[in-house]
């Protein structure tokens, strides 16, 4: 008996529609988030992550309604991230039916926000999202830094130290995106994933760069991830969730079939 490694399809949602960019440019429309979430639930996805990329304030209300609709029909855990900046934002999403919220840049601007959020709502619903890129030159010891603004702005913060600090502040889970891989379909940054997974006591979700099923396997076996997140390989029907699970199971990974 053991805990299953999780497969988490990610819906990037803008104004109530699912999209997925390639390095956040060249977005394609993949449809209605409620229908897609239901389909993933039927396929046996272990969780759904909903990343809100809506820029406008009015659009945020649409997001809340979308989360409500998903929570009424999909009975697996739902994480909502994107634009979570205040305790009120968290409460709004949890009340709408989210089980966890992802906090990203707000944690960088105010690390105590994570502490406050964990004390208020419990660590179990606080996911800290970390966008990291390798910054060490070739031949140097590996080093990764946190980036903001869709990977454009370096912060000077070391990714491993940051993840440890976020866990001390009460993060219950880390969503780690290899920003230099996002949208490339070349697979996760495995040394980064392994370094963070070994550094923290909480579960780590690997994200960014999945192009095939071997990448999911590598994220778990080499990267040490507890869960793997992917978007486009699932959205555009290249692979289904059951296919991914069977593939992982054949390679010795415990999954929920």
């Amino acid at each position: 008996m053991s805990l299953a490694k999780r497969i988490i399809p990610c819906l990037d949602v803008d104004n109530g529609r699912v999209v997925k960019g390639v390095n956040f440019v060249g977005i394609r429309d993949a449809g209605d988030p409620v229908e897609i979430a239901k389909r993933y639930n039927e396929q046996g996805a272990d969780e759904i992550t909903f990343l809100d990329i809506t820029a406008t304030h009015e659009g945020r209300d649409t997001t809340v309604h979308t989360v409500e609709h998903i929570a009424e029909e999909v009975f697996i855990p739902l994480t909502v991230g994107g634009g979570i900046r205040t305790v009120d934002d968290i409460r709004t999403m949890l009340n709408a039916g989210a089980d966890k919220v992802g906090i990203n840049s707000a944690a960088i601007f105010n690390p105590d926000f994570v502490k406050e959020a964990a004390e208020r709502f419990g660590s179990q619903c606080i996911v800290v999202a970390i966008d990291a890129k390798q910054v060490s030159a070739e031949g140097e010891p590996l080093r990764w830094e946190i980036f903001t603004h869709g990977g454009r702005k370096p912060t000077g913060i070391d990714a491993v130290e940051w993840s440890e600090k976020m866990v001390r502040n009460g993060a219950g889970e880390i969503l780690l995106t290899s920003m230099d891989r996002d949208g490339t379909k070349n697979g996760f940054n495995l040394p980064l994933t392994r370094a963070i997974s070994d550094a923290v006591s909480v579960p780590v979700i690997a994200s960014g760069g999945v192009g095939n099923l071997d990448h999911l396997v590598d994220g778990v076996i080499q990267g040490g991830a507890d869960a793997v997140l992917a978007a486009s390989i699932f959205h555009f029907g290249e692979y289904s969730v059951p296919e991914a699970k069977r593939y992982m199971a054949e390679r010795g990974i415990t999954v929920r079939l």
């Binding site: 008996m1 053991s2 805990l3 299953a4 490694k5 999780r6 272990d46 660590s123 179990q124 219950g172 889970e173 006591s201 909480v202 579960p203 780590v204 507890d226 869960a227 929920r256």
Partner: peptide, 23 residues
């Protein structure tokens, strides 16, 4: 407990988060 290990000695993450078997 921290560390928490499985039968093979591998470290288990806390919280216990995800799908596990109910006997």
């Amino acid at each position: 407990g921290n560390p928490l290990n499985d039968v093979n000695g591998d470290q288990l993450k806390v919280p216990h988060m995800g799908w596990n078997q109910l006997h």
